[in-house]
Amino acid sequence: MSLERDLLAMATEPAAGPRPQFFDDPAMDRVWDVLAALTAELAVTRTRLNSLERVLAEHDCLPAGVVDGWVADDEAARDQAQAHQEMLMRVFRGLLQDAAAKQ
């Protein structure tokens, strides 16, 4: 059973209230927002691959649905959380470096 509605559009509806603009040029806000989303999706993808590798190693094969049902154990979850930080340090390198270089 599912809702006969455009779920993606419903999920993407903005909350009421002001949408802040942090930069002088609103395009800059949009670009950074897209970058944030892209970064998140890339991290999701990388983790998917990481999970897949772990599952493959565990099973020697890949039956359907195995990856979706797989839940990271504490150790894997820690590794994956660590990988997220590494990825973020890569993507936002310039921003940190600019700020540090001013010291």
């Binding site: 944030a36 998140a40 991290a43 999701v44 998917r48 990271a72 994956q80 997220h84 930080q85 973020l88």
Partner: peptide, 10 residues
């Protein structure tokens, strides 16, 4: 689940 973990990571 991972997407939520990424939100927490960010």
């Amino acid at each position: 689940r991972v997407r939520f973990n990424v939100v927490a990571a960010m």
